[in-house]
């Protein structure tokens, strides 16, 4: 009896000690995260509810939801709406960003899968090819954006020159000049740059697949196309989902490519470009903070959506 009590209190002590140790080990991480992530985020959200100006941040006063939505009744009795939620420029940038994210992630997934399948096959020099494929990913985005900007230039660009020599174009295209071609240019560069990343993650998934399933399929004489759709794809889906989430989050906060490659105006800007413009270029720090807050919410919602989707998939398979 006494033994049992002693044992239980020893267990309790152990649990307590473990708890204390856990807190001790977690503390540095929590403090660092709070300092570099939570605090700036909280400040940004707070500034979104104030009239802050970059020149005098400490003097910011609380103004409620004015930056998001504000109704002004004019003398004539007419109502005038202002604020981020009714700002067409903001919604245009949201739409641009979503469009960019959807198209780029779709193509990157398709091309990434193809590249991963190729790299998964045995062939001489595979190591070198694997390393070479990663080069676009390794180049800093701003550098590749500038590089492509020159390649896409209408007068000196190599791309127009090549296409004209091949007879695909009759006159040079000014890629960066109009909103439509600018989006195409941004997509080309982003897909060129991020496909290796996708391929790498999917390749990791491919290499974990058990060989015996494929052997069984071969013994049964299943066509290789069917093998891909029925075996490979379902099995690498978890890896793919992770890759897609990463890329989507990246794509939703796209800044550098759009900033360098497109005319910096309302037709082409992304959410991040919009936020930066208001934060630093215009005298509207509070408005820019509100935009950053919404940008954060959009990304959070998309992430939650993806994770939900992942859970549902896992459950339906069970």
């Amino acid at each position: 009896m006494a033994d049992a009590i002693a044992e239980r209190s020893a267990l309790a002590r152990f649990v307590r000690r473990r708890g204390a140790a856990a807190i001790l080990f977690l503390a540095p991480m929590v403090i660092v995260l709070a300092a570099v992530a939570a605090w700036p985020l909280a400040r940004t959200i707070w500034f979104g509810f104030t009239d802050a100006s970059l020149d005098n941040l400490p003097a910011a006063k609380f103004v409620g939801l004015r930056n998001y939505f504000h109704v002004l009744t004019l003398e004539s009795g007419r109502h005038y709406f202002s604020g981020l939620l009714v700002d067409p420029v903001w919604w245009c940038s949201v739409w641009n960003t979503v469009k960019f994210a959807a198209i780029s992630v779709f193509f990157e997934t398709v091309f990434g899968t193809i590249v991963a399948l190729v790299l998964n096959a045995e062939f001489p020099g595979r190591g070198i090819v694997r390393a070479a494929v990663l080069v676009p990913w390794a180049v800093p985005t701003i550098v590749s954006a500038k590089m492509w900007a020159w390649m896409l230039n209408d007068q000196f660009g190599i791309l127009n020159d090549l296409l004209m020599r091949l007879g695909a174009l009759s006159h040079p295209v000014a890629w960066a000049a109009s909103p439509d071609t600018a989006l195409a240019a941004v997509l080309i560069v982003d897909i060129w740059k991020s496909t290796p990343f996708m391929a790498l993650l999917i390749l990791a998934g491919l290499q974990m697949l058990p060989a015996d399933i494929y052997e069984a399929a071969r013994v049964d004489g299943v066509h290789s196309v069917k093998v891909f759709w029925k075996i490979t794809l379902p099995l690498i889906r978890p890896a793919m989902l992770v890759a897609v989430i990463f890329r989507t989050l990246d794509a939703l906060r796209v800044f550098d490519l759009i900033y360098v490659l497109t005319p910096d105006n309302a037709q082409t800007q992304s959410m991040s470009v919009f936020a930066r413009q208001n934060l630093f270029y215009f005298d509207k720090f509070a408005y820019g903070s509100a935009a950053s807050t919404l940008l954060f919410l959009v990304i959070a919602l998309v992430t939650i959506g993806f994770i939900r989707l992942g859970h549902l998939n896992a459950e339906s398979e069970r």
């Binding site: 209408d154 040079p172 000014a174 005319p263």
Partner: peptide, 21 residues
């Protein structure tokens, strides 16, 4: 004017001009 002029700043326009184009 070339359609690309809609993306030209000073140096891009000078590039076309100074190459004699």
């Amino acid at each position: 004017a070339p359609p690309g002029v809609l993306a030209y700043q000073e140096e891009e326009s000078r590039g076309v001009w100074q190459s004699g184009n």
